[in-house]
Design a protein around this nucleic acid. Structure first.
Length: 250
DNA sequence: AAAAACTGCAACCGCTCCTGT
DNA sequence: AACAGGAGCGGTTGCAGTTTT
């Protein structure tokens, strides 16, 4: 598939960003939004490729980026999420508001990996295939959550719902649909799963019911998880989650 | 004090996926 | 259905700063 042309073929600048370049980028995005990343450098007066601009913005210049060291809670979340989804840094980042995937990736590679090794723990097995029963439960939970989100997002995009899941995510740390697309695809590809095809015509009321079922399921699963892991929480308590998500989304 | 080794982070590269035609 | 362009993601690299010898 068409690969983005390499920057150096066009004589574009690479390497560290100067404060002047940062300012140009920030000023432009604040005034116009990023729009097409490919066109942005030209419009903003930058001698950079769009890719470089996007990276600089998402990893460094975005105003909502949280700076400073990771908290113990964030560390715990990263370790747990990594055990569940593996190196899906964007998915992990979606659970940690203000943190970027690049930052989390770096933190994992430089700090947490070593820390786990020092503690005598090998790197945990990656992905939903992880052998630990709790991880399997979480993987099932994640699958169900993604399915519910997928349906909800279809609803939203068709205009049937007043707000999007992103709004719900703002109320609680459910990730935006974008961040979960890999898993959604996996889910959609499951043999014998005809729900994704049928979901195109899902009725609003059905979606609400399904989302509620998902929340109920998640509640049970999380209860189990809490019980086994001494109160660790990836997500807010389920009653809060249910209340805020449903209230905001509907 | 100087050199070597190590560490952490910003940025780049190349691949895959998504979307429009 | 096939193709092309654009966006996003994960892996890797380069280098400045810090620590150790």
């Amino acid at each position: 598939m068409g690969r983005a042309p390499c920057c150096d073929k066009k004589g574009l600048k690479k390497g560290p960003w100067t404060p002047e370049e940062d300012k140009l980028l920030v000023d432009y995005i604040q005034a116009n939004g990023h729009g097409s990343w490919r066109l942005l450098p030209k419009l903003a007066g930058l001698n950079r490729c769009g890719k470089s601009c996007r990276l600089r913005w998402t990893n460094y210049l975005r105003p909502d980026i949280k700076r400073g060291p990771f908290t113990a809670e964030e560390q715990k979340s990263i370790v747990q999420l990594h055990g569940i989804v593996g190196n899906k840094w964007s998915m992990i980042a979606a659970q940690l508001p203000g943190r970027t995937d690049n930052e989390i990736k770096n933190y994992w590679n430089t700090h947490l990996k070593k820390q786990l090794r020092r503690m005598g723990l090998d790197e945990p097995p990656l992905g939903p295939a992880a052998g630990c029963p709790a991880a399997r439960h979480m993987a099932q939970w994640e699958t169900a959550r993604l399915e519910a989100e997928k349906r909800l997002s279809m609803l939203s995009s068709s205009g049937a719902a007043a707000t999007t899941l992103t709004a719900a995510a703002a109320a609680g740390p459910l990730p935006p649909v974008d961040a979960t697309k890999d898993a959604v695809k996996q889910e959609a590809a499951l043999p014998g799963d005809d729900s994704s095809a049928a979901s195109n015509e899902v009725e609003p009321a059905d979606a609400v019911d399904e989302y509620q079922m998902f929340l109920d399921f998640a509640g049970e699963e999380l209860g189990l998880f809490h019980g086994r892991h001494g109160g660790f929480s990836l997500f807010p308590p389920i009653d809060v989650l249910a209340e805020s998500s449903l209230d905001t989304a509907f």
